[in-house]
């Protein structure tokens, strides 16, 4: 007999895997749109460190002259992203899963310990439930980023009908810049996420598909409540 720990509810797994391609298409079509007015750079006064995006990048991905295609895809897949995201947040609240994801009082302090641990500077992790403190902050942050993308997106999609929203975001051009920055943050989140998933290993990855993890060593005299320490043994993915 094997013990399994039910980690991810079915609904969360569906939301996660629907969101992935939806967000991917949003980012891709966003690139096609952004190209038509690619004004953002990273730098100061007269020094440009990074241009978004270098010509070689655009060329390699065949991005130029596809504005209409980009807009059309964007305004189709926005529905998948928005509706899936809305149902996900609704589910978090109805199921009580939000308690496992939202940061608590200790999260800020503990997240630092998690970072030190993940960078192999310090041994030992604070006790946790489903997610460690750094994950709680990252996963909650990414939910707010999603909400931010919807709001800034709406502000530049219909700036006259949502005049008020556009104004509180700092006006049309600021809203566009914010929408862009959020996209960059999404891709950075994605990179870290992938690295952490790779480091965390098979058990953790399988959990996002099957819903369960198989504890690597049987916890002694564990009750249901203390099931979490066994999960500590696998590095959790951000």
């Amino acid at each position: 007999m094997k013990k399994i720990i039910k980690k991810h509810p079915l609904a969360i797994r569906w939301f996660h895997w629907i969101n992935f391609p939806a967000l991917a298409v949003m980012v891709w079509s966003g690139l096609l749109i952004y190209w038509a007015n690619d004004v953002y750079t990273l730098g100061w006064s007269d020094k440009t460190v990074l241009k978004f995006f270098p010509d070689s990048f655009n060329k390699a991905l065949n991005i130029p002259f596809r504005l209409a295609e980009g807009m059309n895809l964007h305004f189709l897949f926005m529905w998948f992203f928005a509706i899936n995201g809305f149902l996900y947040v609704l589910y978090l609240f109805i199921s009580g899963e939000w308690r496992l994801i939202f940061p608590n009082k200790r999260s800020l302090k503990e997240s630092w310990q998690v970072v030190l641990h993940d960078l192999h500077i310090k041994k030992g992790m604070p006790p946790q439930k489903k997610y460690n403190a750094a994950q709680r902050i990252a996963y909650t942050g990414v939910i707010f980023m999603g909400i931010g993308s919807l709001l800034t997106g709406l502000a530049i999609y219909k700036p006259v009908q949502f005049n008020f929203l556009c104004n509180i975001l700092g006006g049309y051009e600021w809203a566009r810049a914010e929408h862009f920055i959020l996209t960059i943050l999404f891709t950075l989140f994605f990179l870290v996420h992938i690295i952490q998933v790779l480091l965390a290993g098979w058990n953790n990855f399988r959990g996002m598909i099957t819903g369960f993890e198989v504890p690597t060593s049987p916890p002694e005299g564990s009750t249901v409540e203390t099931a979490s320490p066994t999960i500590n043994k696998t590095e959790n993915a951000i």
Partner: peptide
């Protein structure tokens, strides 16, 4: 909220 465990 604890995780559910199962023996299978």
């Amino acid at each position: 909220m604890p995780f559910k465990e199962e023996l299978i």
